[in-house]
């Protein structure tokens, strides 16, 4: 890592022989972030384009990575919203939702912090010099587009409704009402997805943060306090939901692929 003459060693600042005097493991956080995000991106990319093992017809389990399943290649029972996208190896079956979910997470205030620090090293950690000669932040294209995060929040809300519908529909298998481990996993996943979506900073702003007078809007203020509580856990929810999305998808893929059988409690 290098410093330059406009950075911390630029005269007339106090010059030091090393870029940082931090002796703690400041590099651990960025390293873990890179590892975690890379695992998710690789897994999600593979699964989104695999176009197999996404639906368990017997129990009506549909993985969130394929919801809504709107490709002509989708199994008919899995397509609750019609099939209209061309069946092509480069077009994911859920191509109407996945790009918006990806952009929702990419423009999320927490993930921005995470990848600015870990992938772009801007900065890698507090009081550790960044390696870039110039910095313009989010003032120019393309990073200025981070400002439209709220629209991806709205889209994510719609997808969360669809995921909720999927989780409810999964209780009704062809043989009638049923309850299995897959249902529990789908329900937990969708509950956490809602928690992550509602804890979004844009949601906090839209719900009531933009107001100057809370006292004139008691209902919005009450909602704002609840969203603020969730917002305090936004980072945790961001990571937990990455994990539950992969876990949910993996479980359904295993059941759909016949590797394991669903643990059934009822039906």
């Amino acid at each position: 890592m290098t410093t330059h003459e406009t950075g911390v060693n630029a005269p007339p600042r106090a010059r030091l022989p090393v870029p940082t005097l931090r002796a703690d493991r400041w590099w651990l956080g960025p390293a873990l972030t890179v590892t975690g995000l890379t695992i998710f991106v690789v897994y999600a990319t593979f699964r989104a384009f695999q176009q197999a093992h996404y639906f368990v017809a017997e129990y009506h389990y549909l993985t969130p990575f394929y919801s809504p399943c709107v490709s002509l290649g989708c199994t008919e029972e899995a397509s609750l919203f019609g099939r209209f996208l061309p069946d092509h190896p480069l077009i994911p079956y859920a191509a109407v939702s996945l790009p918006f979910l990806l952009l929702f997470r990419m423009t999320c205030y927490y993930y921005r912090k995470a990848y600015y620090r870990s992938f772009w090293l801007s900065p890698p950690a507090c009081a550790v010099p960044e390696p870039h000669r110039k910095y313009t932040g989010e003032t120019r294209f393309p990073l200025i587009l981070q400002n439209i995060h709220r629209y991806f929040f709205y889209a994510a809300g719609i997808v969360a409704v669809i995921n909720t519908y999927d989780a409810i529909v999964a209780f009704q298998s062809p043989s009638g009402f049923g309850l299995g481990l897959g249902n529990v996993i789908l329900l937990v996943n969708v509950a956490l997805l809602w928690a992550y979506t509602l804890s979004c900073h844009s949601c906090r702003h839209v719900i009531g943060g933009r107001l100057k007078h809370f006292s004139k809007h008691p209902v919005r203020y009450w909602l704002w306090t609840k969203v603020s509580l969730l917002n305090g856990r936004h980072m945790e929810l961001a990571w937990i939901t990455l994990g539950t999305l992969m876990l949910t998808d993996f479980y359904i893929a295993m059941v759909a692929g016949g590797v394991i059988s669903d643990v059934r409690f009822i039906g």
Partner: peptide
């Protein structure tokens, strides 16, 4: 005041 320069990496909050 250059709000767009802030990339919300939260070091201000940390310290």
């Amino acid at each position: 005041h250059g709000l767009g320069y802030c990339n919300i990496t939260k070091c201000c909050t940390e310290v």
